[in-house]
Design a protein around this nucleic acid. Structure first.
Lengths: 341, 341
DNA sequence: GGTGCGTGCTAAATCCTTTTAGCACTACTA
DNA sequence: TAGTAGTGCTAAAAGGATTTAGCACGCACC
């Protein structure tokens, strides 16, 4: 029904003023000496016509499109991705912006395409997100393009948002220590001797560093460190089973992620050990999984939504720069019990 | 470095022609009588300057923005959401379009805002997506706006994309029947007597209809139907436990979704029954979960990605209309065994 | 009575494309 | 020799906003 959108000219005409005046009034320009009467007439006219500015036309003149580009390697794989997107959408909405989401699959050609596509649309800034934090290659961009790296880093773009993995790693250790665990703690998923050269991601190494630092300052050592190549339930199951066959003094498992912990649960159950009475378990990520397990898995979560939010906020601030470390929330459930005295 | 984007005028100047000619040549206008030489010069100039058209400016003139709006109630909750988005992005990319993603949380006010925001940006069409298929209320839109409902329906907008739940439900039944199960089958999550008035969603009722239809045409009946209010692991666990205490003739569980099945696994394990030797399990959705379980859960999946894809394809077709039912894929894992002869 | 100033408003340019209408020229026809 | 047709190209408008520069008027002042 609504035949055509009203334009500024329509509003001006209805108010009996020039488009210039209408524009100034609707934009609340200060220092303009238009009469109160003119204000009233324009506002009434805009209201009556349901006027909304055409953002493309405005952008042509002002170079602001109230739109940001979100270019991600993967969108659908993990809950991580959607959390980042959700956070970005929230912050954008709060700032009256809107988000163009593109996926590259990590393919440089698609990435170049994606960049071109958002640039063609004159976005106000671009967020580059990766699902596994890594150093991301980014092709050349016109100077002055605002860029924030999300869960990624790049030397050319100083602004980045990352989870505070070091502190998160330390917190996981402290959870066990606070419950009285000082011995029989195994680290599942990481063994520096084996994996020295296996670069996983920038953030994982910080997670490990945080873990080791906290262990050291508590004066503790792991009773075992199981290297796990693929951090998936199957591998977690296998590694835990092997560990339990070798030793009978395991009292706590510090798992590098929830999927490993999931596998560990199964191995523990099979071995007739119950969580947390016999063995406490703590891990990382706060996957959907962690809530489904019985007993619920205590885990140090990845703050996806917060990260997405902070990234957009940084992007829309005057000069996005510096590294933002977002705290990882401790999600307490029921997988840690007090160590036997 | 790149100081400013080259404009069409720059290209024209470099080629020694008018912007008109440059535009026509670059857009491959037929029936124009510009010389081969002119073509060559313009193309060379565009190449040299790295010219890319400003889509906003073009849109101003042509009313095409190569952009679609994707308005969803939830973005981050389920893997479902990201699957839909991923599919939409893929199809859009293939068509040279780009996607504006907005989230409304199901709140009518935010929904109205979202619609206004995409309309302000002159999108070529809008997709309304919901995470639990339902009849979605949509405020008035300017006539002629292309709209496709995704996982939702609305009488005012005839085009919609839905999973083929009827057929999917039937397939789940057939999986059991093909394995020889003809008795001792329990339906977990649905009992018509109890839930007659509890409207879950348009698609769930079709799923149920498909299940019942297939059971009937096989001449079978359920040995038990457990109503489950919230389709989460905890409830699935509880319901299954209760069922197993009541009866000892259960040979197969048809679960309404994977999370119920997950809870059922736990109850079965506790009862000393193994999947699939003692009890076969089949369910719906193909959650991430389903792959993590041991043994892997055979499930009739929701075709998220396909659905997102089809929705955008429909939207960009001449006249989006009609209901598109996307087949639900059977994902075979290891949770169904042959029934004892 | 000329100058200066404040007041209230607008014409026109600009952003970058596409598109309509038509110009200027040559070659050919009648 | 005027008229027609074809060829190769362009001027200018349009699309919807913002912004710069400045007009016209009334009033006070010396």
């Amino acid at each position: 029904m609504a035949s055509k959108r009203a334009t500024l000219a329509d509003v001006a005409r209805l108010a009996g003023l020039s488009p210039t005046s209408a524009s100034m009034i609707l934009n609340g320009r200060p220092d303009t000496r238009l009469s109160q009467d003119a204000h009233d007439r324009v506002n009434a006219a805009a209201e009556a016509l349901g006027y909304r500015p055409n953002i493309a036309a405005r952008g042509l003149r002002t170079d602001k499109t109230l739109t940001v580009g979100f270019i991600s390697d993967l969108v659908a794989t993990t809950r991580f991705a959607s959390g980042l997107i959700k956070g970005a959408l929230e912050a954008a909405e709060a700032a009256g912006h809107v988000v163009l989401v593109l996926e590259t699959g990590g393919d440089p050609a698609r990435e170049a395409e994606a960049i071109a596509a958002v640039l063609d649309r004159q976005v106000d800034g671009i967020i580059f997100a990766t699902m596994r934090a890594r150093e991301l290659f980014v092709p050349d961009l016109p100077a002055g393009t605002a860029v924030v790296m999300l869960n990624a880093t790049n030397p050319r773009f100083p602004a980045s948002v990352l989870p505070d993995e070091f502190e998160g790693g330390a917190q996981a250790v402290r959870l066990l220590v606070q419950a009285g665990h000082r011995s029989g703690i195994a680290l599942m998923g990481q063994n520096d001797d084996v994996e020295r050269d296996a670069f996983r991601s920038a953030t994982v190494s910080r997670r490990v560093a945080g873990i080791r630092s906290a262990m050291e300052s508590e004066g503790l050592t792991f009773v075992a460190e199981e290297s796990i190549w693929l951090w998936e339930p199957d591998e977690g199951y296998r590694a835990t089973r092997a560990l339990l066959e070798r030793r009978d003094d395991i009292r706590a498992l510090l798992c590098m992620n929830d999927r490993i912990a999931f596998g560990a649960y199964q191995a523990l159950t099979e071995a007739g050990l119950s969580v947390p009475q016999d063995v406490s378990v703590v891990s990382f990520d706060n996957d959907e999984l962690a809530a489904y397990l019985r007993p619920g898995l205590t885990t140090v979560g990845l703050p996806h939504v917060q990260m997405g939010k902070r990234a957009v906020e940084a992007l829309l601030s005057d000069h996005p720069t510096g590294q933002i470390l977002v705290p990882m929330p401790v999600v307490l459930r029921s997988s840690i019990a007090a160590a036997p005295a």
